[in-house]
Structures are given as structure tokens and as C-alpha cells.
Design a binder for these strands. Structure first.
Lengths: 207, 186
DNA sequence: ACTTTACTTTTAAAAGC
DNA sequence: GCTTTAAAAAGTAAAGT
């Protein structure tokens, strides 16, 4: 029947309109965060998969798009924190986290916890630190992971502490304030983490 | 001699529901009981707090009640008795032998040694656990039998919640220990 | 820097928006 | 989904001293 045809077209239009809106949202957020094209494409794939599995029901397009972008950043090993995603999104950090867990489960993304090491390149460039300091921070984090100094701790705080230490060891000292700023954590957290890392990894720090 | 983890269990909170009457005048209860809290705009129930066994009760107009904060089944029973006495003091007709239903028991436990949450996240079936250290330091493990949720921390301490019987926590800890030892993580 | 207070997570019920 | 109650776990955060 003609009516059925029109209905199908209507649904199709709505679906396409929603998808177009979601993709433009992903692009807007990705641009605001300066994310590379591969992350945007990965996010688009995650979003399309979520649509195909009807995971959008009962959820906002914005929320699913933000969660898809968060997941994509992690899949591409260039993680952004939920706070960073929330800053360029219109939904709360709480909803993004909740939606992320849901789509991650339903799509079987099987994402491992974010490694502090993945934050090192971005934080170091934000502090204009040399590759040598960066490598040393990564090595500290590798050892920290082996000695179970990362379980339960926030990845950004541990990464920030390792960078703080390596900047001192490399003779290119950055203040706790500066590192805290780029890492999005407080100076208190950097202090707690770096003292723990220095003690357990036997790193002597001369201030 | 090291204490067995299943013997470190400690009930931290019990939530139960009960029906003490067919109808209650919350406005009157709020006016008569000095420490009662009632903001209909905010929440449809009156909040009553007991001191002896430190328990909080949410009293609704339907006569239904929610008790929370009890550290033991005995505390819970005593709390419900005290609630009944408080309401009877207001000339309300409340049954003497009130029945209740335990809805949730929160229990803490200790494995006795630190555990590596990252390794557990890798070793376990990823769709039964959630570990997002950016949001919360604990690893969330949902068990099917017993049907409870366990929060595991790097220190080796655990929180078991969602169970309706005291034995659920013990069964959960035993299962967690066997799972961890099967994976060589403890 | 230290202490205190508070928010993150999980769970369940209640009546209603 | 939210609102309110309680409680523990450990990390992070903010405010006041």
C-alpha cells in the first residue's frame, strides 16, 4: 500500500536524519578535541553498530555519540578522559560513562582498562618535553605496572606522576602545578602518586 | 595462623521492607515525632531515625516501610519493634508481631593479601566484570550464583552486595577465591 | 601539609514524577 | 531515569586550618 510506503520512507528519513545528526556531532566533538581522522572513523563505526543493534532506544543521540567517541579514543590508544569528552558534549560525564558501559557490553568491545602509558605522549607534548623524558616516563610506568602500583589508581594521576619524576630526572623540570594542569588532576594527587612511585621503585629525587 | 577470608565476613548494612499498617497519616507523624524529616516535594516518605540500633526508617502513606542501616538481623528486628512502639505511642493501631523481608545485605570481607586488578580484568570473562579505574578504584564482578555483585579492591578487601541471605556473601567469597586461584592470581 | 567533608561505585525497597 | 536511606571499599577533590 501507498501508506506503508510513505511510512517506510518516513522512518527511513528519520533514521537517516538521526544518523546524520550523530555523525555531525561526532565530527564537532572530535574537532573540538583535535582528534585524528582514524578516531572519528572508529567512533562512527561504533555508533553505526550501536544503531544496528537498537542500542539507542531510551538514550539520547548525543549521549551515545559521546560514549562512542570515548570508546573510539580508547580503541585507538589515544584515550581522552570522561571529563574531556563531557566538556565538548552536551551530556554529563555520568551519562557518558553509563552509556559507554552499556554499549561496550552490548557490542562486546572488550576494552581493557586505559593504560597510563597511553596518556604520556599527549601530556608530554603539552609540557613540551623531549622524547627522552617521555621514554623515561614510559619506563617508570612499565615498572609501576609490574609492581602493582597502578591497580585502583586513576590512569591520568599515575601518568602525571611518572612524567613529573622523569622531567626532574631528565633535567627539564616541570612543576606539579604545570603537570597537574595538562593531566587534569590536582597537585595533591601528583604528590601522592609520585611519592609512592619514587619509594617503591627506588628512585631518588633531588628537588 | 592466617584467618580464612570466608571468616572475615562482616555485615555492614541490611535493607528490609515491611508493612506496618494499611494507611498512615504522614503529616501527623511528622508533626508528632520531633526528629522526623518530611518534605513531600523532595521524597514521598517520612524519615525516622533510631539511635539504639542505628537504623533509619522510611515510612510511606501506604503503611509500607523501608528499614536500612542494620548491622545484623537482630538489630533489624529490634529496629522494627522500636518503630512499631513509636507509632503506637501516636495512638496508631500497629500489629505487635511485624513481619519484614530482607531486600539487600552488604557485607565486607578481606582476602588477606593485595590483588592485581589489571590482571583480573584480563583473566576474567570481560562481560562479567567492569573495571574503570578512572571512575572508581574497585573492580565490579557480577556473580550468577549466588546472584550478588562483588566489588574487589587492590588491597584485597571486598564488598559483597545484592544478596538477600547471609550465606550469599560467604558463597560469593568462596567462589571468588576459587576463580582467582584457578587463574593463579592469588 | 594536614584534617575534614564529600563525591565516585554497587545493592534493594518504598510512591510518584 | 530521578528523588531518599545506609554502609563498606579506595581514590580523588575541595575547603578550611
Amino acid at each position: 500500500r501507498l501508506r506503508k510506503w510513505q511510512r517506510r520512507i518516513r522512518v527511513s528519513n528519520a533514521t537517516e536524519r538521526n544518523l546524520a545528526f550523530a555523525l555531525s556531532e561526532l565530527d564537532r566533538m572530535a574537532s573540538a578535541l583535535g582528534l585524528p581522522r582514524n578516531v572519528r572513523e572508529t567512533a562512527a563505526v561504533v555508533y553505526r553498530d550501536a544503531v544496528e543493534k537498537n542500542l539507542i532506544r531510551g538514550r539520547s543521540i548525543e549521549g551515545v555519540a559521546a560514549a562512542a567517541l570515548y570508546a573510539a579514543c580508547r580503541q585507538c590508544n589515544v584515550p581522552r578522559t570522561l571529563d574531556e569528552i563531557a566538556e565538548v558534549s552536551r551530556v554529563s560525564r555520568k551519562e557518558i560513562g553509563r552509556t559507554y558501559r552499556f554499549i561496550s557490553r552490548e557490542l562486546g568491545l572488550k576494552l581493557l582498562p586505559t593504560s597510563p602509558i597511553d596518556y604520556v605522549p599527549r601530556f608530554c607534548s603539552g609540557l613540551t618535553l623531549k622524547g627522552e623524558v617521555q621514554s623515561r616516563a614510559v619506563e617508570i610506568l612499565r615498572q609501576a605496572g609490574e609492581k602493582e602500583l597502578t591497580s585502583g589508581r586513576g590512569p591520568t594521576g599515575v601518568a602525571a606522576a611518572a612524567i613529573y619524576i622523569s622531567s626532574i630526572l631528565g633535567g627539564e623540570r616541570r612543576t606539579q602545578r604545570e603537570v597537574a594542569e595538562v593531566a587534569g588532576v590536582t597537585e595533591v594527587t601528583i604528590r601522592n602518586r609520585y611519592k609512592e612511585l619514587a619509594e617503591k621503585l627506588d628512585i631518588e629525587i633531588i628537588l | 595462623m592466617k584467618v580464612n577470608p570466608e571468616d572475615s565476613l562482616k555485615i555492614e548494612n541490611i535493607v528490609a521492607s515491611a508493612k506496618v499498617a494499611d494507611e498512615l497519616d504522614l503529616q501527623m507523624i511528622n508533626e508528632e515525632i520531633k526528629d522526623a524529616e518530611y518534605n513531600k516535594k523532595r521524597f514521598p516518605g517520612v524519615v525516622l531515625r533510631m539511635q539504639d540500633p542505628k537504623i533509619a526508617a522510611l515510612v510511606f502513606g501506604s503503611g509500607k516501610v523501608v528499614l536500612t542501616g542494620a548491622k545484623s538481623i537482630d538489630n533489624l528486628s529490634r529496629g522494627l519493634e522500636i518503630l512499631g512502639e513509636k507509632l503506637r505511642a501516636l495512638k496508631l493501631d500497629i500489629p505487635t508481631n511485624l513481619e519484614y523481608k530482607v531486600q539487600n545485605i552488604v557485607t565486607s570481607a578481606d582476602l588477606g593479601s593485595p590483588i592485581n586488578l589489571n590482571k583480573i580484568a584480563v583473566g576474567f570473562n570481560l562481560d562479567r566484570i567492569e573495571y574503570e579505574p578512572e571512575q572508581f578504584p574497585g573492580l565490579v564482578y557480577r556473580l550468577e550464583e549466588p546472584k550478588v555483585v562483588v566489588l574487589l579492591f587492590g588491597s584485597g578487601k571486598l564488598i559483597i552486595t545484592g544478596g538477600k541471605e547471609t550465606k550469599d556473601a560467604k558463597a560469593a567469597v568462596i567462589k571468588i577465591m576459587s576463580d582467582l586461584s584457578n587463574l593463579g592470581l592469588i
